[in-house]
Design a protein around this nucleic acid. Structure first.
Lengths: 254, 254
DNA sequence: AAGTGGTCTAGACCACCGT
DNA sequence: CGGTGGTCTAGACCACTTG
């Protein structure tokens, strides 16, 4: 691979900005393209470090550093002696990566997603702005309940970029044993890699209270999430009401 | 530095467990010791990679990898061309690392901590268990308000391991311009490096409502935090009530 | 110009996994 | 055993900061 430092960019201005990128980062970008294009699918093993080095014409150490960063971002998973694999939401190890609600007891409880509705609708103005589409463009709106130990603890409203999830129906959601993000990636090739959550405390309104089996006016944790796929493209927006009577949202700060 | 692999551990059992540690990790542990002992103080530059390599008798690459991990854990900060520095809570860049509350507008607002009380008291049973001390041992209990734009948005009760903060008084808190964690590290040599937060939605009780200037029964975000110093030692426990009317708790998931 | 961290290489060897 | 990722080294050179 040709290097892209100043010596190889004779046309660059003397005060070049944002033009230098180390080799391993260029390799990383090419690898992300391979992931995005589906050349390497979730759960697959990617080529060995030596093969990648040969393919991109760099040393193994450089290929390794590219892989290191992708592994640090949870796009790849290294397993010594076996190989390097594309991360997948089907993997139980990454199951709670995007669900921070845990029972107070700390014990891992049985978990169940119960979809209630799924319909195409025009995007409201606020959602359109957030998902970076034109107001009125189609979004797929899903309502569902999350149950821990047969008890509803989260009432979610989810809005998806309709164009990426053609053919997603309530029946399909109901028949899926997987987590939502696992379904997205296996059935539609859309991989969620990052999300931002905004939390507030609110009071339960009548419909939400009914869905969660609590009193109207009960305090609930409102979690709004914007989830992104490759290239910082927002794909899913959620508004979830979490009942924090016997569960809580856990976060670790570093 | 002598390597500690199986060849150098003739006494190890054939099924040795937890005994192998790569060189760079041993270097890292020694560096943590230097940080803990105060040989390198917050804000200081640590020795250059070449010096560290010579000191520990390893190659520069190995010293570098140790530094890499410490930088990834926010214990060190690398600055190209200048050196590697001990991270500090005084640095405005790491100011919001442990405070995830942001105004809805997104604009960085003026911030002010107003300590209300500070007194020595015997640890309640629950706090003692959490801080891993005997019930009845002394803890330092602090109450304070956090104000954004002159408006109280957080009411905190903080409990500290009293032994580590000898001489901390309300007057001292009031006269400090710094953040609490910045004061801890500069005045008591206690550096907070990690914390766990547990969030729930609750209703405001009378005293909390009064402190925050909201109605009784107003929904509040209850944030319980346990903060650790070196060696996974819990040092501070907080219970904070966050008013999320014009602010929210922000979190990023990877 | 000197000193720092950052990149890249090539090669040796170790630890782990499967067959 | 062969193949994979993981560690360690030594050396060259680049990019950034300071004087």
């Amino acid at each position: 691979m040709a290097r892209m430092d100043s010596h190889d960019s004779p046309s660059s201005s003397p005060h070049q900005a944002l033009s230098f990128s180390p080799l391993y980062r260029q390799v990383k970008q090419l690898m992300i393209k391979s992931l995005e294009a589906g050349e390497w699918r979730p759960g697959d093993a990617i080529p060995s470090e030596a093969e990648l080095a040969a393919r991109f014409n760099v040393s193994q150490g450089t290929a390794r550093k590219a892989i290191d960063e992708l592994a640090a971002e949870n796009l790849l998973v290294r397993r010594q002696g076996k190989g390097t694999f594309v991360a997948t939401h089907s993997d139980p190890r990454s199951f709670f990566r995007f669900l921070r609600l845990v029972p107070d007891s700390g014990v891992l409880s049985t978990y169940c997603s119960e979809p209630l509705s799924c319909q195409l609708q025009p995007a409201q103005e606020d959602v359109a702005r957030i998902l970076r589409i034109a107001p009125g463009e189609s979004v797929l709106a899903i309502e569902r309940l999350l149950k821990f130990e047969q008890k509803a603890v989260v009432a979610d409203k989810i809005q998806l970029l309709a164009g990426l999830f053609d053919g997603l129906t309530l029946e399909r959601l109901k028949s899926s044993e997987r987590s939502l993000y696992s379904l997205y990636e296996s059935a539609f090739g859309v991989r969620m890699i990052r999300a931002e959550e905004h939390l507030r405390a609110v009071l339960a309104d009548a419909p939400t209270a009914a869905a969660l089996g609590v009193e109207v006016g009960c305090p609930l944790l409102l979690v709004e999430r914007l989830a992104y796929t490759y290239g910082n493209k927002p794909v899913e927006w959620r508004r979830g009401y979490y009942c924090t009577h016997e569960h809580h949202y856990f976060n670790e700060l570093f």
